[in-house]
């Protein structure tokens, strides 16, 4: 296509979008014309996951389970009822099982099929959760994978790997760090990382949290 390179305003788009960008656009155009989708609903879904739903939701649940024994017991027995009461049972969170880490057992979650994940509690999964490497290796060699995340567990701690599906999703309840007795829920929430609720991390220690706070 001829154009005058001296005049930037007459130049065509220098970055023609990639093939998948154009395909998504084409699909949206066709499905919108046929009345099968509403572009406003697409924007709403994106806004929800980019700005409103994320691991902060799961962290609130974990902090409360640490602070309130009755809440913890209910969560471990029937998470669906508890999460419904908190309005955290939306899409891809209809059936959630909470698995608790103890001094004897560490839990870790994977989806070997694709990337099933408790969206209402953790948001959209990170890239590594969706990678072949994690999906294949989490079950085969969980301790090695954990070590790569910087988590080394004593030999006597058993590692249990839970495989999520379209029907059931798991949330790890990490162990409460020592030295946090009497902390407010808000302070406890700050110790709960996303990875600690997938089981590829541990809750932050009070010192770590203080150090991270100081960096901000």
């Amino acid at each position: 296509m001829p154009h005058d390179i001296d005049d930037p305003h007459s130049q065509p788009h220098s970055h023609l979008p990639s093939d998948p960008v154009l395909r998504v656009r084409a699909l949206e155009t066709i499905l919108t014309r046929k009345g099968l989708i509403d572009p406003a609903a697409l924007d709403e879904i994106i806004d929800t996951y980019e700005n409103h739903i994320g691991p902060q939701n799961g962290a609130r649940v974990v902090a409360r389970a640490w602070a309130e024994p009755e809440f913890r017991a209910a969560l471990l027995t029937d998470a669906d009822t508890v999460l419904a009461e908190l309005d955290l049972n939306g899409r891809q969170g209809e059936h959630v099982v909470v698995v608790e880490n103890t001094p004897a057992r560490h839990n870790m979650v994977v989806c070997t099929l694709c990337s099933c994940y408790p969206w209402p509690l953790l948001g959209i999964p990170p890239g590594w959760y969706k990678s072949d490497a994690y999906r294949a290796r989490a079950v085969r060699e969980p301790r090695k994978v954990l070590a790569e995340f910087g988590v080394t567990l004593p030999a006597e701690v058993a590692v249990r790997v839970w495989d999520s599906t379209a029907e059931v999703r798991y949330l790890v309840l990490p162990m409460r760090p020592a030295g946090t007795e009497g902390w407010s829920l808000e302070a406890l929430e700050r110790l709960v990382s996303r990875d600690s609720m997938i089981g590829t991390g541990l809750a932050l220690q009070p010192d770590d949290a203080a150090a991270r706070g100081a960096q901000r």
Partner: peptide
Amino acid sequence: QCDTLPTPVFEAPWHAQAFA
């Protein structure tokens, strides 16, 4: 959370479009 702060939820806008 600290470990999610630097990472955008979707790496590219079209990922978000396809997801939605």
